[in-house]
């Protein structure tokens, strides 16, 4: 039975509504408390700062993916695009000797071009984004290998580049956290406060109704996938700065984690909807689980299992509370 028919009963259970909105935040707090009790080292300024630095890359990539999901599209190429941009920025600096800003700019543009191509496949050839971006992943990986021959780029980078990962503003705030905050705020403003963002969300909520509202839905979907690739490329560059090398396979794990973060986010605040603030909660949960399990000395395979379980839990909750459109 459709949700509309069961409405009258919902009003009585406002507590249920509250739980639906803040249940995921509650879960994040619970996870925090459990690890705080289980490990003495979890709640220390150093460790919390460590967690935040660790999740900054994931946050940037997930923010972009959130925009895609909010506009009704999936992007399964974020991991490989992050990987490609990561080796590109390394190679452009180390091999081509380009200045840092130029290298970063070109690497970001390269990622966005691939996102735009996915967008064109979706809007012009009407390939579902799930499939278009699934195909774009290996293409990005292929370009990646073609560029670096499959080997890591180990050369020394210009010193300031490392600041992206290790710098501190006023000697306190780590630069990667600052970047993540800026990206989160920018994407959040974009989605919630701009004409384009509202059109994106409308397109994601009901493509046909959006079209009949005079919204250029194809433009929205193209932009959404390009922005998703932008986030992925930025994340890839941050990752290279952190690793100190351009590693061809570095971006790959971020697909699973960013999808999980977005799905977790869809269970928070606005149930069933992908929001940047919701994704932030998802990313924090993933970061705490990784870090906490590490501190507790859990075997590496447990982390994999936890990832899978969290993904399943997140999606089943999101589907329970709203609709996830896959095609």
């Amino acid at each position: 039975m459709s949700a509309a028919l069961s409405e009258p009963s919902r009003r009585k259970t406002d507590l249920g509504g509250l739980a639906a909105r803040y249940g995921t935040v509650g879960a994040a707090v619970a996870i925090f408390l459990v690890f705080a009790l289980a490990s003495g080292r979890f709640v220390s300024a150093a460790n919390i700062s460590n967690i935040l630095v660790q999740i900054s890359v994931l946050m940037v990539i997930s923010s972009g993916l959130t925009v895609a999901v909010a506009s009704g599209e999936f992007d399964l190429s974020v991991g490989q695009i992050a990987g490609l941009s990561g080796v590109l920025v390394a190679g452009l600096m180390a091999w081509s000797g380009l200045p840092i800003p130029v290298a970063i700019l070109l690497a970001v543009i390269a990622g966005m071009v691939l996102g735009a191509v996915s967008g064109l496949l979706v809007t012009r050839l009407r390939i579902p984004s799930l499939i278009a971006t699934l195909a774009m992943g290996p293409i990005a990986l292929g370009l990646n290998y073609a560029y670096d021959g499959g080997d890591s780029i180990y050369t020394e980078f210009p010193k300031p580049f490392y600041l992206i990962a290790t710098g501190r503003i006023f000697g306190v705030i780590p630069v990667p956290i600052l970047i993540a905050v800026v990206v989160v705020v920018a994407f959040s403003v974009l989605v919630n406060r701009t004409r384009l963002g509202r059109a994106l969300v409308a397109t994601g909520a009901n493509l046909q109704a959006a079209r009949l509202s005079g919204i250029d839905v194809n433009r929205c979907r193209l932009i959404a996938l390009t922005l998703s690739a932008f986030g992925a490329a930025m994340g890839g560059i941050m990752l290279t700065a952190r690793l100190g090398t351009g590693q061809p396979g570095a971006g790959e794990p971020y697909l699973m984690d960013s999808l999980t973060a977005v799905f977790l986010g869809m269970t928070a605040f606005k149930p069933g909807r992908a929001t940047v603030q919701g994704t932030l909660v998802g990313v924090v949960i993933i970061g705490m689980l990784d870090n906490g399990l590490n501190l507790l000395g859990a075997p590496f395979y447990v982390q994999n299992e936890v990832r899978g379980v969290v993904m399943i839990a997140a999606v089943s909750l999101a589907v329970l509370r709203g609709e996830i459109r896959f095609f």
Binding site: R198, A199, A205, N206, A209, L212, G214
Partner: peptide, 17 residues
């Protein structure tokens, strides 16, 4: 199918046009 944006608020639904 053609006019209601599921999951969006009354206000958001009013302003899409």
């Amino acid at each position: 199918r053609k006019a209601v944006f599921r999951g969006l608020s009354v206000g958001e639904n009013m302003l899409t046009g």
